[in-house]
């Protein structure tokens, strides 16, 4: 027998600090797998966020430079402009990218910065304890929307990926999820395409990944994966939102 599935080369030997059933570590693994498959581990630089994934550098085994909360796209811009032949990605949660860092993200997209952005949408602020995020669904309970998110009081969810698709410099934006084997495979393909888009120097790409947060959703991990299918995708349909890249090799 031969080993067909093991810890990828660019994932450090470490126990994740994430809660049981959290999607972050699946996404970390997928990024590490794609980096290995594309052979870009020696020239990739990651920009982790503030939030649960702030410790991403403890897991993904490439050079990493920590950004202030929300500023991933700006820090990545500085890195990529100085090192245009390197692969630069930012890894950002929904509060990081769609609230405090909205301006940096929209303008990086509009400039067509040749970076890959991984936007993890778990519909809440995870690390701070489950407050309302810009992505929290209408009616969804959080510690700051005790009766459920109310459009009049709390505004409706922000569809950041759709907004970014309008930006002229964005070339590829897809929304995926990591709640099922099928969706995980699709997410990996999207991450691959995003990196390849950057390797070809085609412009700004982003993968929004719906990711379970069982603890703050007050569900079991299995319930959380089902909630994404049954509820979350109604607000955030899984689809290619923008693609001017088409088929890409390399």
């Amino acid at each position: 027998m031969q080993k067909v599935f093991q810890r990828p080369k660019y994932l450090k030997q470490a126990v994740f600090h994430y809660c049981p059933g959290c999607g972050h570590s699946i996404i970390h693994r997928l990024i590490a797998e794609v980096i290995e498959e594309l052979g870009i581990g020696e020239k990739t630089i990651g920009v982790p966020p503030a939030g649960c994934a702030v410790l991403a550098y403890d897991y993904i085994d490439v050079d990493m430079g920590e950004a202030p909360h929300g500023r991933g796209a700006a820090v990545a811009t500085g890195l990529k402009r100085v090192l245009p032949d390197h692969i630069v990605f930012s890894y950002q949660g929904d509060g990081d990218i769609a609230a405090i860092g909205t301006a940096e993200t929209i303008h990086a997209a509009n400039r067509g910065e040749s970076i890959s952005v991984f936007f993890i949408n778990n519909a809440c602020y995870g690390m701070t304890g489950g407050q309302m995020a810009p992505t929290t669904l209408l009616g969804q309970e959080s510690t700051t929307t005790p009766g459920g998110r109310n459009e009049k009081r709390d505004a409706a969810p922000l569809d950041l990926s759709e907004i970014l698709a309008i930006a002229r410099g964005s070339v590829y934006i897809e929304r995926t999820a990591v709640n099922s084997p099928r969706n995980i495979r699709k997410t990996k393909r999207a991450i691959t395409k995003s990196f390849k888009t950057q390797m070809a120097g085609l412009g700004f790409s982003l993968v929004e990944i719906l990711s379970p947060c069982p603890v703050n959703w007050k569900m079991t991990p299995v319930e959380a994966t089902k909630w994404i299918d049954d509820t979350m995708v109604k607000t955030y349909p899984l689809k290619v939102i923008k693609d001017t890249v088409g088929k890409i090799d390399g």
Binding site: M1, Q2, K3, V4, F5, Q6, R7, L11, V15, F16, Y18, P20, G21, C22, G23, H24, S25, I26, R29, S180, P181, I184, R185, P221
Partner: peptide, 14 residues
């Protein structure tokens, strides 16, 4: 292994 968030599973095949 694909769905395992903790990379706790290794898979072998013939």
């Amino acid at each position: 292994a694909l769905v395992c968030p903790d990379v706790a599973i290794e898979v072998y095949r013939e």
